[in-house]
Design a binder for these strands. Structure first.
Lengths: 167, 167
DNA sequence: TTGATTGCAAAGCATTTGCATGCTA
DNA sequence: TAGCATGCAAATGCTTTGCAATCAA
């Protein structure tokens, strides 16, 4: 954690920016929270410790953290940007429950290999990738079974709406 | 194409909806365009043929097409929803150029297999997935070389901004 | 005739920016 | 002291909804 702070301050210096109490606090709270935080989530957490910090600053600081390599943007399909730890949290992908939004992180070397192969096949120089598997988590599968499949074919206007996320 | 229209009308009937000239036109234009269209893109195309059609109708009709299984939502990381053909355009993933936004579609059976395996590993019932590989396309790699790497390390406020898309 | 459809205008939302004030370096 | 940072308010951009008028079945 101290290491991350050093990285942050070094980044700030290199970029000709300034160290401030807000930025320090925001980084601190971010580091203490092992979750996928939206700028608003983090804002709420930070506000608890210093109600004077504004949403804008949190938003801007998250971008700064991403620049510094400490945070990484993730998007799960609800229209909001989240951030996860990036430093010493190597690349991984996500599986997201379409029912309860629980997310599981995973890493598959085979995946990485195939991806590079595909990129090469098309002459692309790979930069990054985003893989999200949407599915129903074990928990929600059980609840569905318990509830005895509530939606059969009765409603007047059927909800055909496609599953969340992108394809 | 006639087939798609039948599917659409059948869907409309089944759902107790109504067939309208606007919907027919929107579907028609959509089918004629083999691209990833945002609701606004499609709106602009449709307007050329009937300036009376509103953006809202296009937007709503695209959702309808998705329900009917004719269109499929895709998101490439700029914050806008696009639609691509879904009928007789089996599942595939995308590779997106971070420079010029060119997209290449691809399909990898190995991928599909591994994904199911991963889902199973975690007890998830897979619903769908989204894989996007961001990279630099052959074309842009050349232009970069031609321009002699314009950005070295001179600018006052360096752009560390992370690559587009999610991770 | 009934109820879905349309399209305008306006609301929602998350994100981003303008700007006067406040603070690091 | 110069110039970056802050945070409020307001703008943005895309998406979604309210609603009165219109139209398909």
């Amino acid at each position: 954690m101290t290491e991350e702070k050093e990285i942050f301050h070094r980044h700030i210096q290199r970029a000709g920016l300034k160290r401030t109490a807000q930025r320090d606090l925001i980084l601190d709270v971010f580091l203490r929270t092992e979750e996928h935080l939206s700028s608003e989530d983090l804002y709420n957490l930070v506000k608890r410790e210093d109600s004077g910090v504004g949403h804008t600053t949190v938003y801007r600081t998250l971008k700064l953290l991403a620049e510094a390599g400490l945070a990484r943007e993730v998007r799960f399909g609800d229209g909001r940007t989240r951030y996860e730890h990036n430093y010493k949290h190597p690349h991984h992908d996500h599986m997201i429950c379409t029912e309860c939004s629980t997310t599981v992180e995973f890493f598959s070397p085979e995946f990485e290999a195939i991806q590079d192969a595909i990129a090469a096949q098309h002459g692309f120089e790979p930069v990054q990738h985003s893989l999200r598997i949407f599915g129903i988590c074990p928990n929600c599968q059980c609840s569905a079974r318990d509830n005895g499949r509530k939606e059969s074919a009765a409603e007047p206007r059927v909800r055909f709406t496609s599953a969340p996320g992108t394809h």
